[in-house]
Simulated scan of single mutants.
Amino acid sequence: METYTAMRHFADSWGLLFMVLFFIGVALFAFRPGSRKQADEAARIPLKDD
């Protein structure tokens, strides 16, 4: 099997599955309960010196 064809097949199947699961994990992490306080604190970091 040609290398490009093998890599393309992997990307079309398992690679896509991995990217979808990674996206869902990041979204769940960002919208978990209690994360608003941490996000607000991180948003204020650039303004602390002013």
Score class of each variant (00 low, 15 high):
Y4W: 01
Y4H: 09
T5V: 04
A6F: 15
M7F: 05
M7Q: 02
M7V: 04
R8M: 11
H9C: 03
F10D: 00
F10T: 04
F10C: 02
A11L: 13
A11G: 09
A11Y: 01
D12T: 03
D12A: 15
S13Q: 03
S13E: 01
G15I: 00
L16D: 01
L17P: 06
L17I: 12
L17E: 05
M19W: 07
M19H: 04
M19T: 04
V20W: 00
L21Y: 07
F22Q: 11
F23R: 03
F23P: 00
I24Q: 04
I24E: 03
I24L: 06
G25W: 09
G25C: 07
V26R: 02
L28I: 10
L28A: 13
L28F: 12
L28E: 13
F29G: 06
F29M: 05
F29I: 05
A30S: 14
A30E: 09
F31G: 14
R32S: 15
R32H: 14
P33Q: 09
G34N: 07
G34C: 05
G34Q: 08
R36T: 08
R36D: 12
K37H: 10
K37S: 05
Q38E: 10
Q38I: 14
Q38F: 14
A39K: 12
A39N: 04
A39G: 07
A39P: 00
E41M: 11
E41A: 15
E41D: 11
E41W: 06
A42L: 14
A42D: 04
A43H: 09
R44D: 06
R44Y: 06
I45A: 09
P46M: 11
L47D: 14
L47E: 11
K48C: 05
D50H: 15
D50G: 06
D50W: 14
